[in-house]
């Protein structure tokens, strides 16, 4: 398995995945609704980071922040800080680059929202085992077909990467050139992809036979061996979170928060 999930014993891990998903969606809805840049930042500092620390995934979150998010934030501040189309209050200018107040505020707004979106999602993924997520979502009414596709994809990724690597090695041993110009390298991809596709098409018959032999799709309401706890407190919590998000959006739309 190749997901970002980290096994820990924590209250965040124990929550029903649906509750965590609703919390994540509520956070995303709120940070993208409110215009103030400091609100998303406040949510990151007061909710997302403490949740990560509580779940004992803070170190990994920091590393992923540095790898995934920080480069984007740097690019964002350069592009919109210096080249914002609607910037009027110029602080500094050099050639076509104009550092403007409007550009900085815009970068802050986008940057803090993006941080809340990405870090919140990361905490969700870091603390939620995909198997438990799929079971909980299926219990909540999601189609077992979607659960099947997601689970199967996650589990065959390692085998496929292995196959891709061995094909790459075999091709290199036969003198395949993977250096040179972009077009040449793109052409080099072809002998790599073709065997993977051939395997995919020849395997599909056996794979679907195996699924059908086990009556997959025979009933719209299958039972489940594993059950994810869904206490009343969490169900109430989910409704409260959804209501809070809806309230914020309404307040923004009618202009109370502006």
């Amino acid at each position: 398995m190749t997901t970002l999930y980290l096994e820990r014993a924590s209250a965040v891990h124990r929550l029903n995945p649906v509750t965590k998903l609703v919390a994540l969606l509520a956070i995303i809805a709120i940070v993208f609704a409110v215009p103030q840049w400091w609100i998303p930042l406040g949510i990151v500092v007061l909710v997302v980071v403490p949740a990560a620390v509580l779940a004992r995934v803070g170190g990994r979150l920091l590393r992923l922040f540095l790898i995934l998010l920080l480069p984007l934030l740097v690019v964002l501040f350069i592009v919109q800080g210096f080249f914002f189309p609607d910037g009027t209050t110029v602080l500094w200018q050099w050639g076509p680059a104009r550092l403007t107040v409007e550009g900085l505020v815009f970068s802050l707004t986008i940057g803090s929202r993006l941080s809340a979106l990405v870090l919140g999602s990361l905490v969700f993924v870091l603390t939620t085992h995909p198997a438990r997520l799929m079971t909980a979502l299926t219990q909540a009414g999601m189609s077992s077909k979607i659960a099947y596709v997601i689970s199967a994809s996650l589990q065959i990724i390692p085998a496929f990467q292995e196959r891709a690597r061995s094909i790459l090695l075999a091709q290199q041993a036969r003198g395949l050139e993977i250096a040179g110009g972009p077009l040449r390298r793109a052409r080099a991809l072809l002998p790599l992809i073709a065997p993977l596709v051939l395997g995919m098409i020849t395997d599909v018959d056996e794979r679907s036979t195996a699924m059908e032999a086990r009556a997959f799709g025979a009933t719209p309401r299958p039972t489940s061996l594993t059950v994810v706890d869904d206490p009343l407190s969490e169900r109430i919590g989910r409704w409260l979170l959804a209501a809070a998000a809806a309230a914020v959006i309404v307040l923004v739309v009618v202009g109370v928060i502006a």
């Binding site: 198997a131 994809s153 065959i156 794979r207 195996a210 086990r214």
Partner: peptide, 8 residues
């Protein structure tokens, strides 16, 4: 190919 992949 016979492992469904649907379960972990």
């Amino acid at each position: 190919n016979q492992i469904s992949g649907a379960r972990f």
